[in-house]
């Protein structure tokens, strides 16, 4: 039995603005040309946060319980972990 609840469009609007802001910061880091593990992990962290927000709010997974609550989070962990490992190993 499903229950009806309320999804705030206002919350999604804030999420959209936050995602756009993090994108702009990522772009600026790229324009400066900063490299290395710290900068790369910061940028990757922004991407993972954006991905989690997209899954939670835009896809609506935040309101689920059980298995389907976690696929996007687990997926983000997979490429996030692989990319982090590869960049950290290079140093």
């Amino acid at each position: 039995m499903k229950k009806r609840t309320v999804l705030g469009i206002r919350a999604c609007t804030w999420v959209w603005l936050l995602m756009m802001s993090l994108t702009l910061i990522t772009y600026m880091i790229g324009q400066v040309g900063v490299g290395g593990v710290s900068a790369s992990m910061t940028v990757l962290g922004f991407a993972l946060i954006k991905g989690q927000m997209l899954g939670d709010y835009f896809m609506g997974l935040k309101r689920l319980s059980g298995f389907w609550r976690w696929p996007v989070s687990l997926w983000l962990f997979l490429p996030g972990g692989l990319i982090s490992a590869a960049f950290m190993l290079v140093g």
Binding site: K2, K3, R4, T5, L7, I9, R63, L64, S65, F67
Partner: peptide, 9 residues
């Protein structure tokens, strides 16, 4: 400002 959505499994 709000929309009704389903929540569940």
């Amino acid at each position: 400002t709000d929309a009704v959505v389903e929540s569940g499994r």
